[in-house]
């Protein structure tokens, strides 16, 4: 699924116009179908808001957003709901599994919403769970899983309905490094096998290295686009935030339209 943003601005309303807080300013982006793009920036830079706008969870204050040829910024609430239901898979930092449903039921949730036939649900959930290595945990409840397992279940839920777009917001932010790597490997392999567009927000360079390319976000603007690090050695300070200098540099050299991503090398 191709993602296009044209001059998108987002502000949180304040008590009056002067009190409104602008989170994103005049952002234009074009992510091609099948890309694994990484939004990278410090906490508070606006990357999660950007992800919310792409994911049709929030609406921009100004500008236009297209998913393939659909302009999502003009859709009404029920069409947005249908779009999210059919075309988008979400992976959250805090997993956000439904505590009252077991792993199988959690993963089956998007299929149930889409009224998928029961027999079909069974096989697809089993397949999704097997693909994240949780085949033996189907009847467990979220609080009986480790953090890594919860995130794997969440990934299975995000992919079970084969969405053309998967959004991941700090998917490793709440995991130790070993589990974090496992999750990133998983997302990478899903990208490879399903050819879905993936947009992942992170502040970690190490995580960013798993994407095809990185879009820097700072102070509500997108900065330089670098190549993904999949073929490279991850940087030394895996979990450090970008230096103030790099943030300043990115902010001063905005790139309205990023170049097409460099092809991945394996």
């Amino acid at each position: 699924m191709r993602i296009r943003l044209e001059h998108v601005t987002h502000a949180y309303a304040g008590s009056d116009e002067s009190a409104a807080v602008q989170v994103l300013g005049d952002i234009s982006l074009d992510i091609a179908s099948g890309d694994f793009a990484v939004l990278m920036g410090a906490s508070g830079s606006g990357k999660s808001t950007l992800l919310n706008l792409i994911g049709a969870v929030d609406k921009p204050t100004a500008g236009r957003i297209f998913l393939d040829d659909n302009e999502t910024s003009v859709l009404d609430d029920s069409r947005l709901t249908m779009l999210r239901r059919r075309s988008i898979g979400y992976i959250f930092q805090f997993f956000n599994l439904i505590p009252t449903l077991n792993v199988f039921e959690n993963v089956a949730f998007p299929l149930s919403l889409a009224n998928t036939p029961r027999s079909d649900v069974k096989s697809r959930v089993a397949e999704a769970l097997a693909s994240v290595g949780l085949g033996n945990r189907a009847t467990h409840f979220p609080n009986e899983l480790s953090g890594g397992e919860m995130q794997r279940a969440a990934i299975a839920r995000a992919v079970v309905h084969n969405p053309p777009l998967i959004l991941a917001d700090e998917p490793t932010g709440n995991l130790d490094s070993r589990n974090g790597e496992m999750i990133l490997d998983l997302i990478r392999s899903i990208h490879k096998s399903r050819r879905a567009t993936i947009v992942m927000a992170t502040h970690s360079e190490r995580a960013a290295a798993y994407g095809d390319y990185v879009i820097g976000v700072s102070d509500g603007r997108v900065g330089g686009v670098g190549s993904g690090g999949w073929e490279k050695e991850p940087a030394r300070d895996h979990y450090s935030a970008p230096s103030p200098e790099s943030v300043a540099e990115n902010a001063s050299t905005p790139t309205p339209h990023p170049p097409l991503p460099t092809p991945r090398k394996q």
Binding site: T81, Y90, A114
Partner: peptide, 15 residues
């Protein structure tokens, strides 16, 4: 939060 999650995952307001 939980209800918002259900909405994000595709449940309509009516649901």
């Amino acid at each position: 939060r939980e209800l918002a999650l259900l909405r994000v995952l595709g449940m309509t307001v009516a649901q």
